[in-house]
Design a binder for these strands. Structure first.
Lengths: 249, 249
DNA sequence: GCAAAAGTGTTGTCTCTACACCCATGT
DNA sequence: ACATGGGTGTAGAGACAACACTTTTGC
């Protein structure tokens, strides 16, 4: 199918969506000591944006967010949390959308549904970087990871949305043990500490961090050790979900 | 003006609102050792509901919440915070609305804008109980305070919205010093402690609570003392905003 | 003086911080 | 052996709970 046909399909879908409501996803990953965000780049205009979309009339907003995540990352069962709803009447200008559509041969009038006011519900997702293959959508040819502190200018108020998501993650990670979703199933204590240091943006002491984590009683030490460099091999840990449930109850 | 004319005006206002989006306010007050919520009671159906409303097309959702608060409580400059957006496709049934409108002589078809799906953005407000005169709207003849743990069944998913607001308040009050908004300008340490005990639903020790609060450095001791019973009069404190700003910076 | 409630002091426990020390591995 | 990074021990600082004590009022 030609891209323009895809886009026509999309534009025709307008009436199937809940008016005025959109969903944007801030997808966090962790790689090489950096906290990353998944961003899309529009084909023609080279503008950057968060993966987002609209909500079908009989779909919950959380389901919409999951659907979008699946389309962009190919992963289901993702850790997903709503963090804020952005309800300003003027969240930025829509010229990029207009230009993008024009470049595909669709001249949208000011009254077109895509150019109306939308409030957007922000969800953030924590994913295992290694399991995710960024998938572009019909408007973007590239989906790629960016250091959260070094993002390009984004369309609309998406920079603010990223900032708010990061702020929420920071406040959350300390008392909700959410960080494990950003690592692969097994990990070393050092990896976990790097993650915390990156998110909280401050150095932590090995000794104390380790004790704190182990005292939570939610880490299971996998017997196997690491093989690698010229030093004592670290233990590999696994996150123990049952123990966490006990804590929360 | 007749009530039915008011209601006609309201129904005609549909096109001026942002479709699919509503705002609901959980208004907390503190009185006689109880945490209270302001609820409306519909005239005919006797159903209870949160004060809520719709968002004008060129108004932010926060402004809409403030407007609704002002209409219901007569107070401006209220502490207001967004806490969650409820985006399920089926948030309960709208029969009450239909019945209410029917009782005023308006038979709404299934396609009427008021009976469509709405996502609702929850805001909670903390107000000085003594300054608030609950004001009913055109659909309700009574606005009244209820103990948050003893609310009547509410329409739609409003019970859940109250529960979520309370949960958010609990998590917030400890590290964001938000409780002062629920008291009058000056208050005794005992009142403040009662508030915390009620919100957190546990007993605290006088001595330790007092130290903790005073050590925050945000309470100013008003020289005047209390007059009353047969015991040592308590100091009256005032919340010192400047000191708080210093802390947050 | 006495009851009642406000306010202060003290002590032990727990947690976090900082740093010192020991352990296992590859070269 | 030794450099490198993983893991443990411990002393000091600070926070918090529990309880005892003093203070000020009306009766």
């Amino acid at each position: 199918m030609l891209p323009s046909e895809n886009i026509k399909d999309f534009l025709d879908q307008g009436p199937e969506y809940l008016p005025s409501v959109s969903v944007d996803c801030v997808i966090f990953g962790f790689h090489e000591q950096q906290l990353k965000v998944l961003l899309l780049e529009f084909k023609k205009t080279k503008a950057h944006a968060l993966p987002g979309g609209f909500v079908f009339k009989n779909e919950s907003t959380a389901e919409a967010a999951k659907r979008i995540l699946w389309e962009r990352t190919g992963v289901k069962d993702i850790y997903l949390e709503q963090f804020y709803t952005f309800g300003e009447p003027n969240r930025g200008n829509w010229d990029v959308h207009k230009a993008t559509m024009a470049s595909h041969g669709f001249d949208l009038t000011k009254e077109h549904w895509l150019l109306q006011r939308f409030i957007t519900i922000g969800y953030y997702a924590l994913v295992d970087f290694s399991k995710v293959k960024p998938t572009p959508d019909i408007f973007s040819d590239v989906g790629d990871w960016y250091d959260v502190h070094d993002t390009p200018p984004l369309i609309l108020d998406h920079n603010r949305i990223v900032a708010k998501a990061l702020e929420t993650l920071r406040l959350t990670i300390d008392h909700k043990l959410v960080g494990f979703n950003l690592l692969s199933e097994t990990f070393t204590m050092n990896e976990l500490q790097s993650l915390y240091e990156t998110v909280l943006d401050k150095k932590l002491l090995r000794a104390n961090f380790q004790r704190k984590m182990l005292n939570l009683g939610i880490l299971e030490r996998v017997k196997k050790k690491f093989t690698g460099k010229a030093h004592k091999p670290p233990f590999v840990y696994r996150f123990n979900a049952e123990a966490l449930d006990k804590q929360n109850s």
